[in-house]
C-alpha cells in the first residue's frame, strides 16, 4: 500500500490540476499563475538558502537573466519567447557558475552582501547596454497564447519539476551534506565534505529554476525592463519574504508562502485602498515575529493553539 505522504501528494497534485476547472474566472486564474511563479522562485531559493544556508539577496539576477533570455530572442531574432524556457535556465546556470566560484569563498553576511551586489550589477548592466537590451525602454511582446489555462498548466509543470528536483536533492546524500554545511561548515569540512563543490551543487539547480521562472514570467506578463526583473525589493527581497512566511527549509513552505503572500497582497490591494501596503507589511512582520519558522515550520504550534481553543470551547459547553 502507498504510504500516507505519497497519497496526500497525489491528492494535492490532483487538486492543483483541477483548480482552473473549478475556478473559471480569468482574474482568479491570473492570481493562481502569479502564485505558481512565486512558488517556483521560492522553492528554488529555498534549496540554496534554506537547506544549504547560503542566504542569497541576488536571485533577481537569475530571474532577470531568464526573463531577458526570452525577451532578447524575440527582440533580436524574432523567435518565439517560448524558446526562452530552454535558453533562460541555461543562461542562469552559466552566470551562476563563475558567481559560485567567487562568492562561495565568502561566508555568512559576506556571501549575502556579494549576492546583493550581484543583482544590482546586472540591473545596471542591462540598463546601460541599450543597444543589446533596449535599456530602460524594456521589451514588449505580443503573447501568442491568450488562454490562462495554458499558462496555468505550463507553470504548474514547472513548479512540479522544481518541487520534485528539490525534494530528490534534499532527500539524497547531497541533502544531508547541504544541511551539515548550513549547521557547521567547519565541522562539515573536517568530516571530508568538499563544501564549495556541494554549495555549487545547490546553486546550479537554484539558478536553473529561477531562470526558468523568469522566462515563464516574460511570456506571461509580456513586458520587462531592467528595473522590474532585476529589482532588489520586488524580486530578491520578496522571494526571501515568501519563503520566510511559508517556512524555510521545508518542502511545501515556499508554495504556502507564495500563496499567502500573493493572495493576501492582492486581497488587501483591492479592499484597503492606499493603506494596503502598510497593513500588508505589518501583517508580514507579525507573522515573521510570532512564527519565525514560517507557517509550514511552525505547524505544531499552530496545531497546539487551535486544539487548545477547541478544548477550551468544549470545556465551556
Amino acid at each position: 500500500m502507498l504510504n500516507k505522504n505519497t497519497l496526500m501528494t497525489i491528492v494535492f497534485a490532483l487538486v492543483a490540476v483541477a483548480l482552473p476547472v473549478i475556478i473559471k474566472a480569468p482574474y482568479q486564474q491570473h492570481i493562481l499563475i502569479l502564485v505558481i511563479i512565486w512558488a517556483t522562485i521560492g522553492t528554488a531559493w529555498n534549496l540554496l538558502s534554506g537547506y544549504a544556508g547560503q542566504v542569497s539577496f541576488g536571485h533577481a539576477a537569475f530571474f532577470g537573466v531568464g526573463a531577458y533570455s526570452a525577451g532578447l530572442l524575440t527582440l533580436h531574432y524574432g523567435l518565439s519567447p517560448w524558446w526562452g524556457l530552454a535558453l533562460g535556465p541555461v543562461m542562469a546556470m552559466l552566470i551562476a557558475l563563475p558567481i559560485g566560484a567567487i562568492a562561495f569563498r565568502l561566508r555568512g553576511p559576506y556571501f549575502a552582501l556579494a549576492t546583493l551586489a550581484l543583482g544590482e550589477i546586472f540591473r545596471l548592466m542591462f540598463l546601460n547596454m541599450t543597444g543589446f537590451t533596449n535599456g530602460a525602454k524594456g521589451i514588449l511582446i505580443m503573447p501568442a497564447i491568450t488562454s490562462k489555462i495554458a499558462y496555468y498548466y505550463i507553470g504548474l509543470g514547472i513548479l512540479a519539476a522544481t518541487l520534485l528536483v528539490t525534494y530528490l536533492i534534499v532527500h539524497s546524500k547531497i541533502g544531508y551534506y547541504l544541511v551539515s554545511i548550513r549547521e557547521d561548515q567547519d565541522a562539515a569540512t573536517s568530516l571530508g565534505i568538499p563544501t564549495t563543490f556541494y554549495k555549487n551543487l545547490a546553486l546550479l539547480p537554484s539558478a536553473l529554476f529561477t531562470g526558468l521562472a523568469g522566462a515563464f514570467y516574460m511570456n506571461y506578463v509580456t513586458f520587462i525592463d531592467p528595473d522590474i526583473v532585476f529589482n532588489l525589493t520586488d524580486i530578491s527581497i520578496m522571494v526571501i519574504l515568501v519563503v520566510m512566511l511559508g517556512g524555510v527549509a521545508t518542502t511545501w513552505g515556499p508554495t504556502i508562502g507564495a500563496a499567502l503572500y500573493i493572495i493576501m497582497g492582492e486581497l488587501f490591494r483591492t479592499t484597503l485602498g492606499s493603506a494596503n501596503v502598510l497593513v500588508f507589511g505589518v501583517l508580514v512582520c507579525l507573522i515573521i515575529m510570532f512564527l519565525p519558522n514560517g507557517i509550514a515550520g511552525e505547524l505544531d504550534i499552530i496545531k497546539r493553539i487551535t486544539q487548545r481553543k477547541k478544548a477550551g470551547l468544549s470545556g465551556g459547553v
Binding site: 500516507k4 505522504n5 496526500m8 501528494t9 491528492v11 494535492f12 487538486v15 483548480l19 475556478i23 474566472a25 482574474y27 482568479q28 492570481i31 493562481l32 521545508t250 518542502t251 511545501w252 508554495t255 504556502i256 500563496a259 499567502l260 493572495i263 493576501m264 492582492e266 486581497l267 483591492t270 479592499t271 507557517i295 509550514a296 505547524l299 499552530i302 496545531k303
Partner: peptide, 25 residues
C-alpha cells in the same frame, strides 16, 4: 501525518482566500 496537515492547510487557505477575493470585488 505531518505532511497531510501541511497540505490540508495549503488547500484550505487557498480555497478560502480565493473565495474571499471572488466575493469582494
Amino acid at each position: 501525518m505531518k505532511n497531510y496537515r501541511k497540505i490540508l492547510t495549503v488547500l484550505l487557505l487557498l480555497s478560502f482566500l480565493t473565495l474571499v477575493t471572488a466575493g469582494c470585488g
